[in-house]
Amino acid sequence: MALLFFVLVGAVSLAAALGVVMSRQPVHSALFLLTNFASLAVLYVTLDAQFLAAAQVIVYAGGIVILILFVIMLIGGETNDFSAAQRAWSRVVGIGLGVILLLTVSYSVLTRMLKAPDDATSLLQGGTPAAVGNALFTEYVLPFELVAILLLVALIGALVLGRQSEGTGEGVPSIEASD
């Protein structure tokens, strides 16, 4: 039963991943990405990571994908044809590399099968918000604070990068060039 559930959800996430790569329209890609994130969140729950599942939905699905969609709307995603004409060889190489990656990883994983742990003997308390929060604010408080600083810096950096050039209004193209 659990295996069937895993196969179904896994298939959805894999299909969504393929959809991201193969869609012509960036908007479609973004929606596929959303699907992928959501299905992964479901899998997190089955892995006893309840807090991270919630965070996945909030941060990735709710934040990042929305941001990407916003950008797509801002700049218009009407560009590109799929094939990269001037580097046709890279398609072959790319797919070849992908196959190599997949084969080697699968081989190494399948030759050393990891059984699922017995639930009764599992030491994990489960990734409940209480457990994760407890760990974050005691043992990992320093990395946590560092991440906070990182986010602040990223915020400022994004602000600086996204700003229009000096002296012109928000979103209004500059009319008078500096002589």
Partner: peptide, 27 residues
């Protein structure tokens, strides 16, 4: 409960798809 390796293989598949996408797409 599915084996842990299944999750790992799924992750590898998604990773490969993503990596291939990085190489193939121009947008």
């Amino acid at each position: 409960m599915p084996e842990t390796s299944y999750y790992l293989i799924l992750a590898a598949l998604i990773f490969t798809v993503g990596a291939t996408g990085v190489l193939l797409r121009r947008n």
